[in-house]
Nucleic acid binder design. Structure first.
Lengths: 223, 223
DNA sequence: CGGGTTTTCGCCTTAGAAGCGAAAACAGGG
DNA sequence: CCCTGTTTTCGCTTCTAAGGCGAAAACCCG
């Protein structure tokens, strides 16, 4: 479960109380019940940590199944990526805490690798989908959206270009109202929202493809 | 396990001899052994159908875990995408056969949905990776590569553009030799090969990103 | 050698993304 | 109330990858 907090991408971890790997930080999760699928299971497990309505996106990552990934009994895990918008701060149980994805503490089992996979997936999808909606609040300024993207991607993003690209793709729409300026003045920023709050892919795969028929064909020229 | 055969994308299926879903066509697979991971398991299962060395690419697709996806006992399946180059024709056991992905026969369980997922994944990755290497032989002409891409993608692609894009990305390199012309004459086609035979992603995710430092940077200023 | 065929190449257009500077809109102080 | 500093937004230009199109290249056959 990832969230951007105080300018960095963070992950919710839980400190193990029992062996194996007692005291180390682990991802939330648990066993699959007989009447649920894996996504239902992970949503159920996470509901013990945060309110389910705060979870704006959940998707499968991969299966981790190395025979020795957990000492003792054989455990096959299906890893998920879950996202929480930046404007909520759930009350957490005693044994859980947010940790910056860059610079994780000593983690249990192969969970560090899983977090890395989740971060990579998030970074990739931020560029070719509208997944930013899952990190941002319902309304936001371009500046705050820029900070979210910068934190999640790990490099600085131009606010100008961010707004241009997302707008051209039809993902961003203005609310009409503006946010009050900061303490040091400045022009008040316009508020935006994402046009859709479900995952939408903006076809990055239109390669090798002939243009759609609805575009007018160009007239032939003769020398 | 997918392969392009006689101009269409096909999948290797196995006809079930036992209930449930007796007589229907199913994907190859089986139970996970205690000392292997899921990829090792699927490779072992497939080795009963084709030579392992003919399998040029294997990757995880997704976990299918609906409680009722298989009648009777609970079965959680990890689906894989496997690719076989077009220049091999493995000898098959009696009960297995290739089927065109477009127009599958009545399939067992949720296997039709899995095949659809595999096809979509292949199509996507053909456009932003070098995954074509797994469908093509070691050496090929641009025309045959065009046919492979057309069959897998489901629409006609331009040989000119295909060569240009793959070359610009540095994925394609000429072998120096040429293939003999066909029965109706024509200029002999140059032979090419993929520069790498492992999966390489050609960053379709370079969005919102400032240009790399090794390019003549024009005095970048950041807010 | 000329006609038919297939491949390859060069030049141009299109589309999306990024660079850059200036205008717009606010706060605060003199 | 004007001037300065700050932040946001907009318009124009540039860059890069992909696609269109026709001509040249290189072969076969009669």
């Amino acid at each position: 479960m990832l969230q951007v907090r105080s300018g960095s991408l963070q992950v919710l971890l839980w400190q193990r109380a029992l062996d194996p790997d007692k005291g180390r930080w682990a991802l939330p999760g648990g066993r699959l019940g007989p009447t649920e699928d894996v996504e239902g299971s992970i949503r159920r497990q996470l509901a013990e940590k945060v309110d389910v309505r705060q979870l704006t996106h959940v998707e499968q990552l991969a299966v981790f199944s190395a025979p020795d990934r957990v000492p003792g009994e054989r455990v096959v895990a299906t890893a998920f990526l879950g996202l929480v918008p930046c404007d909520v701060d759930p009350v957490l149980p005693e044994d859980t805490a947010w940790h910056s994805v860059a610079g994780l503490p000593e983690s249990a089992f192969d969970h560090a690798a899983i977090v890395e996979r989740a971060r990579d997936r998030l970074r990739a999808k931020l560029s070719y989908t509208n997944l930013g909606f899952a990190l941002a609040g319902r309304e936001f300024t371009v500046s705050t959206l820029r900070e979210l993207y910068s934190a999640a991607l790990g490099y600085r993003v131009s606010a100008t270009n961010l707004q241009r690209v997302l707008s051209r793709r039809g993902l961003l729409e203005p609310t009409g109202s503006t946010a009050p300026p900061g303490p040091s003045g400045g022009r008040p920023a316009a508020l935006f929202r994402f046009a859709a709050r479900g995952l939408q892919v903006t076809d990055p795969f239109a390669v090798f493809r002939p243009p759609p028929a609805d575009r007018p064909a160009r007239a032939a020229r003769w020398p």
